[in-house]
Design a protein around this nucleic acid. Sequence first.
DNA 1: CTGAATATTCCGCTCATCAACATGTCGTCT
DNA 2: AGACGACATGTTGATGAGCGGAATATTCAG
Lengths: 118, 118
Amino acid sequence: MSAQELPLTPLSTAILLALAKEELHGYALMQEVEVQSAGVLAPGTGTLYSALMRLLDDGLIEEGDAPRPDGRRGRSYRISSQGRELLRAEAERLDRVLALARARGFAPEPRPAAGSGS
Amino acid sequence: MSAQELPLTPLSTAILLALAKEELHGYALMQEVEVQSAGVLAPGTGTLYSALMRLLDDGLIEEGDAPRPDGRRGRSYRISSQGRELLRAEAERLDRVLALARARGFAPEPRPAAGSGS
DNA sequence: CTGAATATTCCGCTCATCAACATGTCGTCT
DNA sequence: AGACGACATGTTGATGAGCGGAATATTCAG
């Protein structure tokens, strides 16, 4: 049974989000997740790779074939269409939570699309 | 260990959010969480109460004293100032995640505060 | 009285995370 | 050449969060 359901764990969400931007291999992913989350998530290798295996198992990501420009080895991963779907669903869930938080005065007013595209 | 850190679990977030609106006792909370999350979270009694005990332990909620209007028994809980702080921090974290998701086309444009503010 | 809804506690299970260890490659400094 | 640190990919064992259900009471409706 690889029936993935909501909610996704924060780590799975972060991984999918990072891979939504570009294909990456495990080690780079580990660093990207930490930067992207402003240090809130800082998974060790054990956590990262087991999460990766789970996501592969559930078909949310797949092995990529982008060779590293610098010739270093490293299997890379990319998000699958199923992963994109689930990420979209999770984003909607978070949006609802945030809307509630806002209504109760626990979140800032919504701001237009962020300038963090880099 | 009662050192609560980010990220909060979805269930803890939902509980704090529900208690931010009004003081509730366990059973009512269980139902409120389910409604509030549109059915995504539907904790059983064991799950709910153990989460509640954890939150109490960490000082994020405290026992309330609002008597039930219908005279039924029931210890009620309310959010603490520490809980409010952490909820605010978690909301900010979610906001950052959503901003990223939006930048990658995985979330709808932000909408002004929802109409569920009672 | 009986049964449904309310309200809480306890137990056993699974799964995600973490810390630590193991292995190997590549580039650089000495 | 040898050593060292960053890169890269895993495994293992323990812990703790969350799950689901059984058990226990109380209260309200029929």
